[in-house]
């Protein structure tokens, strides 16, 4: 018997593949932002599916702040090689050589330089007219309102009040030279959808997502991993804590959560019963009122 039912995940998958192909067909030089996180992993898998039996026809771009976790770097290089994808890594060298870090500059300025500015430079230098990002609408309030095809002016800025209406799945892909589009194929996925898909598709992810005993310090109620030269405050002492990371960012600004979830089904179970949404462990979302919206206006993903 033929069945004509599609599960939610299969519908989301089809929608994302459609979006990825649309970008490939309509733009000159697309690139896929690859942050090494779980959403990126899903997005890359969808890109593989979209062009099977061919290879992913555009490069993956990692904007490297130099402050990612060792495990992330290892995973990134191994995985890109394994799937035969073209990986490009971009760092804002001048800012790094000036010693930019969040302890001295504060998270706002640090992000503006190492992430937003670095991203804009990377896109400009690469001549990319479309960039995929793995953001989901359920992550943060202002993301909930961003279009799937999000138009950026020549400075990479987002204007939330002047977004193009997005009707049916007829995406407007037209831009002028120097303007660009950010595309979010996972817009309609939830955190649970992402994990469930990783489970079903057996997609490899960075081991940091899984719980194990790690060397941590407790600061302001957050679990900060002891990686790199984090300046310790007086009363802080490293301790072994069973924990995992719900999202992966830069080590100074990414906290872990107490967890025993060591497998994907266990993570799913945790996601279903957890009482805090995932971005709470990302310090940068809380540094200013409407901070994500502000960053996006300036060109952040």
């Amino acid at each position: 018997m033929e069945s004509y039912r599609l599960s939610k995940l299969k519908l989301l998958e089809a929608e994302s593949i459609y979006i990825i192909r649309e970008v490939m067909a309509a733009f000159e030089k697309p690139v896929m932002l690859y942050s090494v996180g779980k959403d990126s992993s899903v997005m890359v898998r969808l890109a593989q599916k979209a062009f099977y039996p061919g290879k992913i026809p555009f490069p993956l771009l990692h904007v490297d702040t130099g402050m990612k976790f060792r495990e992330m770097y290892e995973f990134r290089d191994r995985y890109a090689k394994e799937i035969g994808a073209e990986l490009k890594v971009y760092s804002f060298r001048e800012a790094l050589s000036r010693g930019t870090n969040p302890w001295e500059l504060g998270t706002v300025k640090c992000c503006a330089l190492l992430k937003t500015q670095a991203l804009l430079r990377a896109l400009k230098e690469g001549g990319y007219d479309a960039a995929f990002g793995g953001a989901r609408r359920d992550e943060e309030k202002s993301r909930a309102k961003e279009r799937i095809f999000s138009f950026r002016d020549e400075f990479g800025q987002w204007d939330p009040k002047n977004q193009r209406p997005e009707i049916w799945n007829l995406y407007n892909t037209l831009i002028n030279p120097n303007e660009s589009i950010r595309v979010f194929p996972l817009s309609n996925w939830s955190e649970l959808d992402v994990w469930h898909y990783i489970h079903l598709e057996k997609i490899p992810v960075v081991p940091m997502y899984f719980a194990k005993e790690r060397e941590m310090i407790v600061r302001g109620g957050c679990l900060i991993p002891l990686e790199g030269p984090i300046p310790l405050k007086e009363d802080e002492k490293p301790q072994k804590i069973m924990c995992r990371f719900r999202t992966l960012g830069c080590y100074p600004c990414t906290g872990a959560v107490l967890s025993k979830a060591a497998t994907v089904p266990e993570i799913i179970e945790e996601v279903m019963t957890v009482t805090n949404s995932e971005r709470i462990t990302r310090l940068i979302d809380h540094d200013q009122d409407s901070s994500m919206e502000k960053k996006k206006r300036e060109g952040y993903f």
Binding site: K145, K161, S190, D289, E293
Partner: peptide, 19 residues
Amino acid sequence: DGLKAEREQGITIDVAYRH
């Protein structure tokens, strides 16, 4: 009401998606 302007005016001005 996600966007800052909306929060202040107390009205929704755009389409917001939720799960």
